Simulated scan of single mutants.
Amino acid sequence: MTARYSIEVFACSYFGIALTLQGYVNSIVDCTIVAFYGQCELQLKLLRYNLEHLTDLDDVDLQEGTINENTLSYIDDNLIKKRLVHCVKHHQKIIWFLSETQSISNEFVTLQLSVACWTICMSVYKLVTVDMFSGEFFLTIGYLNCMLMQFFMYCYHGSQVLVESEFIAESAYCSNWVDISPRSRRLLLIFMMCCTRPLVICAAKIVPINLESYLAVLKASYTLFTILHKK
Rank of each mutant, 00 (worst) to 15 (best):
A11E: 14
V124F: 08
V85G: 05
H90K: 00
Y143H: 13
I80Q: 10
V25P: 02
D76R: 08
T32V: 09
L218G: 14
S165G: 08
V161C: 15
L189K: 05
T101N: 08
T32N: 04
V178L: 11
A11C: 04
S123L: 15
I141H: 00
S175M: 03
E100N: 08
K126Y: 11
I120C: 08
T66H: 14
F133M: 09
H229T: 09
L44E: 00
I201E: 05
V178T: 13
R183F: 10
F97R: 05
Q112R: 12
C195I: 01
S99E: 15
H91W: 05
Y49M: 08
E166Y: 00
W118T: 12
V29L: 13
V128E: 02
C121H: 04
C40R: 05
Q39H: 03
L127F: 03
K205Q: 14
E166C: 10
M132P: 00
I168Y: 03
Q63F: 07
W96N: 11
S13M: 11
D77T: 08
V109I: 15
I75P: 09
R186F: 06
A18D: 11
R48W: 02
L72V: 03
I28E: 11
R48A: 08
G142F: 01
D131C: 02
V207R: 10
S181R: 01
E164A: 14
Y5Q: 10
D59N: 08
S221K: 10
A18W: 13
Y222K: 15
A3L: 05
L218Q: 14
I120F: 09
F133S: 07
Q160D: 08
R186C: 03
S175G: 13
C146R: 09
P198Q: 12
F15C: 07
Q102I: 13
Y154M: 00
A116C: 13
T223C: 06
D30Y: 02
